[in-house]
Design a protein around this nucleic acid. Structure first.
Lengths: 95, 95
DNA sequence: ACTACATTTGACAAATTCTGACTTGTCAAC
DNA sequence: GTTGACAAGTCAGAATTTGTCAAATGTAGT
């Protein structure tokens, strides 16, 4: 699994829907929807939720992919530090 | 350990240095340095590196804390999804 | 090849966020 | 009450993000 967009596209095509239809449901331009599916743009949290509803997908699964995309942007070149960094956060959250 | 700023402050105070001195070394305003230590502002990657040099700290350790701060911002309320999201990324990176 | 429709792309303005500097306030020590 | 260290608020310019539009490209079907 690569990014959220690819997952969305797979879901959409399995249901024979058009970009235009999903875009209309989110009330955004088709062009934006295209970019989201191609990974050019990030969807907003709310958009992900709407997409999950509309495509009858598991909301948490899509949100997890959405979060993964965002984490990837932040981590950038620091891949080797990411695990340690997340562990620090986990400790912090436990308290 | 909370955030990078607290670590920096601890290091700085252990060496009896003033905010002003560290700030001067980074060529930023003392007020900005104060905010970084209190976690009001994020340091840039380059600033973290400079600070590590100046305070004789381990660069990777500080960068890890720096990354943790950034991850925390991104994760936001999605704490429960963060582990899964990072696992997805790890798989992706292996290839 | 022509038409019709779906998708992609690049340019763009508006909105939002980030950054660092500047100013003012607080507090403790002297 | 002056000084020095730091905190806190405000601000403008820079940078990034967001969504739209128009034009380009892809893709069938005829």
């Amino acid at each position: 699994m690569k990014h959220l967009g690819q997952k969305i596209r797979a879901l959409r095509e399995k249901q024979n829907m058009l970009l235009r239809q999903v875009a209309a449901h989110l009330e955004v331009d088709t062009a934006l929807m295209s970019k989201i599916e191609r990974g050019d743009r990030n969807a907003s949290r709310q958009q992900v939720i709407e997409i999950a509803k509309f495509l009858k997908a598991n909301e948490d699964e899509l949100l997890t992919l959405w979060l993964a995309d965002k984490l990837e942007n932040v981590v950038g070149e620091e891949k080797d530090l990411a695990s340690d960094a997340l562990n620090i956060l986990k400790k912090k959250w436990k308290k």
